[in-house]
Amino acid sequence: MRLTVDSRSVNESYCRVAVAAFAAQLDPTVEEISDIKTFVSEAVTNCIVHAYLSIPGKIYITASLTEDNTLIVRIRDKGIGIADVSKAREPLFTTGGDDRSGLGFSVMECFSDKLKVVSKEGVGTTVTIYKHIRGKNGNEA
Protein backbone atom coordinates (compact mmCIF):
# COMPACT_ATOMS: atom_id res chain seq x y z
CA MET A 1 0.00 0.00 0.00
CA ARG A 2 1.00 3.56 -0.64
CA LEU A 3 -0.27 6.63 1.15
CA THR A 4 0.74 10.28 0.88
CA VAL A 5 -0.62 12.81 3.36
CA ASP A 6 -0.07 16.44 4.32
CA SER A 7 1.95 17.04 7.49
CA ARG A 8 -1.10 17.97 9.57
CA SER A 9 -1.69 16.48 12.99
CA VAL A 10 -5.29 15.45 12.12
CA ASN A 11 -3.76 12.86 9.78
CA GLU A 12 -1.93 10.98 12.55
CA SER A 13 -4.83 8.71 13.44
CA TYR A 14 -5.73 8.08 9.80
CA CYS A 15 -2.17 6.92 8.98
CA ARG A 16 -1.86 4.47 11.86
CA VAL A 17 -5.33 3.02 11.27
CA ALA A 18 -4.65 2.63 7.53
CA VAL A 19 -1.41 0.67 8.07
CA ALA A 20 -3.04 -1.49 10.75
CA ALA A 21 -5.92 -2.23 8.35
CA PHE A 22 -3.41 -3.21 5.64
CA ALA A 23 -1.73 -5.64 8.06
CA ALA A 24 -5.10 -7.17 8.97
CA GLN A 25 -4.70 -9.77 6.17
CA LEU A 26 -2.11 -11.52 8.40
CA ASP A 27 -4.71 -11.81 11.17
CA PRO A 28 -2.59 -10.03 13.81
CA THR A 29 -3.26 -10.29 17.53
CA VAL A 30 -4.69 -7.35 19.47
CA GLU A 31 -1.21 -6.59 20.82
CA GLU A 32 0.37 -6.69 17.36
CA ILE A 33 -2.27 -4.29 16.03
CA SER A 34 -1.56 -1.93 18.88
CA ASP A 35 2.21 -2.17 18.27
CA ILE A 36 1.75 -1.35 14.57
CA LYS A 37 -0.46 1.65 15.31
CA THR A 38 2.03 2.89 17.88
CA PHE A 39 5.17 2.79 15.72
CA VAL A 40 3.37 4.35 12.76
CA SER A 41 2.07 7.10 15.02
CA GLU A 42 5.59 7.78 16.35
CA ALA A 43 7.15 8.05 12.89
CA VAL A 44 4.35 10.17 11.41
CA THR A 45 4.33 12.50 14.42
CA ASN A 46 8.09 13.00 14.05
CA CYS A 47 7.57 14.16 10.46
CA ILE A 48 4.99 16.69 11.64
CA VAL A 49 6.66 18.04 14.78
CA HIS A 50 10.31 17.88 13.67
CA ALA A 51 10.81 17.47 9.91
CA TYR A 52 8.14 19.96 8.85
CA LEU A 53 8.17 22.16 11.95
CA SER A 54 8.33 25.43 10.05
CA ILE A 55 7.47 24.49 6.46
CA PRO A 56 4.63 21.98 5.94
CA GLY A 57 5.13 19.19 3.43
CA LYS A 58 4.10 15.67 2.48
CA ILE A 59 4.56 12.42 4.36
CA TYR A 60 5.07 9.34 2.16
CA ILE A 61 4.08 5.98 3.60
CA THR A 62 4.45 2.57 1.99
CA ALA A 63 3.67 -0.77 3.56
CA SER A 64 4.31 -4.25 2.22
CA LEU A 65 4.27 -7.86 3.38
CA THR A 66 6.94 -10.45 2.70
CA GLU A 67 6.35 -14.15 2.11
CA ASP A 68 7.55 -14.89 5.61
CA ASN A 69 4.82 -12.68 7.11
CA THR A 70 6.92 -9.64 7.89
CA LEU A 71 5.31 -6.24 7.67
CA ILE A 72 7.64 -3.58 6.28
CA VAL A 73 6.56 0.03 6.76
CA ARG A 74 8.50 2.92 5.28
CA ILE A 75 7.77 6.48 6.35
CA ARG A 76 9.58 9.23 4.51
CA ASP A 77 9.67 13.02 4.68
CA LYS A 78 11.49 15.73 2.77
CA GLY A 79 11.96 17.88 5.85
CA ILE A 80 14.94 19.27 7.75
CA GLY A 81 16.68 15.93 8.32
CA ILE A 82 18.65 14.74 11.34
CA ALA A 83 22.27 15.83 11.89
CA ASP A 84 23.27 12.91 14.12
CA VAL A 85 21.01 9.87 13.80
CA SER A 86 22.64 7.73 16.48
CA LYS A 87 22.30 10.57 18.98
CA ALA A 88 18.66 11.15 17.97
CA ARG A 89 17.97 7.45 18.60
CA GLU A 90 19.23 7.57 22.18
CA PRO A 91 16.40 7.18 24.72
CA LEU A 92 15.16 10.52 26.10
CA PHE A 93 17.06 12.59 23.53
CA THR A 94 14.77 15.33 22.22
CA THR A 95 14.99 18.69 20.53
CA GLY A 96 11.25 19.06 20.99
CA GLY A 97 10.95 20.92 24.29
CA ASP A 98 8.62 20.34 27.23
CA ASP A 99 5.85 18.37 25.55
CA ARG A 100 8.09 15.71 24.06
CA SER A 101 9.64 12.89 26.01
CA GLY A 102 12.33 11.77 23.54
CA LEU A 103 10.94 8.25 23.53
CA GLY A 104 9.70 7.98 19.94
CA PHE A 105 12.62 6.04 18.46
CA SER A 106 12.86 3.80 21.54
CA VAL A 107 9.18 2.97 21.19
CA MET A 108 9.57 2.22 17.46
CA GLU A 109 12.50 -0.09 18.26
CA CYS A 110 10.81 -1.82 21.15
CA PHE A 111 7.52 -2.41 19.29
CA SER A 112 9.12 -3.84 16.14
CA ASP A 113 11.86 -6.30 15.16
CA LYS A 114 14.11 -3.87 13.35
CA LEU A 115 14.27 -0.12 12.76
CA LYS A 116 16.37 1.59 10.10
CA VAL A 117 16.78 5.36 10.02
CA VAL A 118 18.43 7.12 7.09
CA SER A 119 18.61 10.89 7.12
CA LYS A 120 20.34 13.81 5.52
CA GLU A 121 20.18 17.38 6.74
CA GLY A 122 18.16 19.57 4.42
CA VAL A 123 17.01 16.55 2.40
CA GLY A 124 14.82 14.48 4.69
CA THR A 125 14.46 11.30 6.69
CA THR A 126 13.37 7.76 5.89
CA VAL A 127 12.36 5.41 8.67
CA THR A 128 11.88 1.72 7.83
CA ILE A 129 10.26 -0.57 10.36
CA TYR A 130 10.15 -4.38 10.15
CA LYS A 131 7.78 -6.48 12.17
CA HIS A 132 7.12 -10.17 11.88
CA ILE A 133 3.41 -10.82 12.44
CA ARG A 134 2.78 -14.08 14.26
CA GLY A 135 -0.96 -13.59 14.11
CA LYS A 136 -3.68 -15.30 16.11
CA ASN A 137 -2.88 -18.71 14.62
CA GLY A 138 0.91 -18.41 14.61
CA ASN A 139 2.13 -17.49 11.10
CA GLU A 140 5.35 -19.14 9.93
CA ALA A 141 8.51 -17.06 10.10
Partner: peptide, 16 residues
Protein backbone atom coordinates in the same frame (compact mmCIF):
# COMPACT_ATOMS: atom_id res chain seq x y z
CA UNK B 1 -7.75 2.94 23.64
CA UNK B 2 -4.56 4.20 22.08
CA UNK B 3 -1.57 6.16 23.34
CA UNK B 4 1.85 6.93 21.87
CA UNK B 5 4.81 8.76 23.40
CA UNK B 6 2.83 12.01 23.24
CA UNK B 7 0.91 10.63 26.22
CA UNK B 8 4.16 10.21 28.13
CA UNK B 9 5.01 13.84 27.36
CA UNK B 10 1.56 14.83 28.55
CA UNK B 11 1.93 13.06 31.90
CA UNK B 12 5.49 14.30 32.37
CA UNK B 13 4.39 17.88 31.73
CA UNK B 14 1.43 17.61 34.15
CA UNK B 15 3.81 16.18 36.75
CA UNK B 16 6.01 19.29 36.41
Amino acid sequence: HFMDSSGVGLVMGRYK
